[in-house]
């Protein structure tokens, strides 16, 4: 429960001292060629539909291909770049193949039903032509999420510490937490939209709620599981109550708190998207809903990709924060 166990490949595998030049040039040039092949196939094969950005997509693939090839040649001199290339080359090849297959079964030979499965250049088109609206959606989603998450995480943390520390608070908070906590925050949505003055404040509150529950419970369990010897040591050395809470209980509980923060973040993503689909008139969830209304499937995929990048970045940020604050722990998972 206390730690996510994802073995990172790079961390587990012992670092290789040198990369042989032959292997590197084979791998790197192979990846470069794969991307150039993708560029050629996209540019030259006849298309079944009419796509505006086919040549742009081909050009981008070509630039990537040349960049990989150039990096390979440079990598023969710089060992750092060589190691990264060697590690990433199989993925680069796989990505090129993925795009090629996607390109072939959609734009070129139409093996997939067309409006539902747009080719890569159609998604590129969305990014290029509807980028402003997407960026605006990202901004609004981020605003909603950050405010709601910050409020929820702060409240959850403070409540968790209070419940873990004070018998009185625990007595009153425990039954409420048990009764209300497991309810999915989205279930409150219809009520929240008429209780709160605006759909934005309602969504903020729900995101805060979705975040606060796991953060409260895990902070509480973290505080409850602190080694009692820490308190004895601190007390014999002259610690007052505030020192016991701030300098003993909270630092000791922090690993648990972070598990709660991760759970809260995943939960808040779900509430964000649902809230934006059902009430808030902006953001990525709204964009998805809007694109579906117009049967603009390329826009939906584009929004999904942006959403994945956004969520992944936020999780990465949280991992970084944890790595910084909990650097004293042994065997921390790298994200």
């Amino acid at each position: 429960m206390s730690d996510v166990t994802l073995a990172s490949h790079a961390a587990v595998r012992p670092a290789r001292k040198g990369v042989s030049r032959g292997a590197l040039s084979r791998l790197g040039l192979g990846a470069g060629l794969a991307w150039l092949g993708l560029a050629g196939a996209t540019a030259l094969l006849p298309e079944a539909g009419d796509f505006e950005r086919t040549q742009d997509f081909a050009a981008i693939a070509g630039v990537i291909g040349f960049a990989i090839a150039a990096a390979t040649l440079l990598g023969l001199r710089s060992s750092g770049l060589a190691r990264r290339l060697r590690y990433g080359a199989p993925w680069l090849v796989a990505l090129a193949l993925f795009f090629l297959v996607w390109e072939l079964v959609t734009a070129k030979y139409q093996r997939l039903p067309m409006p539902f499965f747009p080719p890569p250049q159609a998604i590129l088109e969305v990014f290029l032509d509807d980028g402003a609206r997407l960026a605006d959606s990202v901004w609004h989603s981020l605003l909603l999420l950050v405010v709601g998450y910050a409020v929820g995480a702060t409240l959850g943390f403070v409540l968790g510490v209070a419940v873990g520390w004070s018998v009185l608070v625990g007595y009153w908070a425990h039954p409420i937490l048990r009764f209300v906590g497991p309810l999915p925050a989205t279930a409150w949505l219809p009520i929240a939209f008429f209780i709160f003055p605006s759909s934005w404040s309602a969504s903020t509150a729900l995101i805060a709620l979705a975040t606060a529950f796991p953060v409260t419970v895990l902070t509480w369990s973290g505080i409850a599981s602190v080694n009692k010897g820490f308190y004895d040591v601190a007390r014999t050395l002259g610690a007052k109550q505030s020192f016991l809470i701030l300098r003993v209980a909270i630092p000791a509980a922090l690993p648990h708190v972070f598990v709660g923060l991760f759970m809260g973040l995943s939960g808040s993503f779900a509430v964000l998207v649902v809230a934006e689909m059902l009430g808030v008139k902006s953001g990525l969830g709204w964009y998805l809903q809007w694109a579906q209304g117009w049967a603009a499937y390329a826009n939906m995929y584009a929004a999904l990709i942006v959403m994945a990048v956004l969520c992944s970045s936020l999780i990465t940020g949280l991992f970084r924060l944890r790595a910084y604050l909990l650097s004293w722990q042994k065997g921390l998972v790298q994200w």
Binding site: F230, P251, L254
Partner: peptide, 8 residues
Amino acid sequence: DPTLFPWR
């Protein structure tokens, strides 16, 4: 047990 604070 030395009971050192592991985060310090």
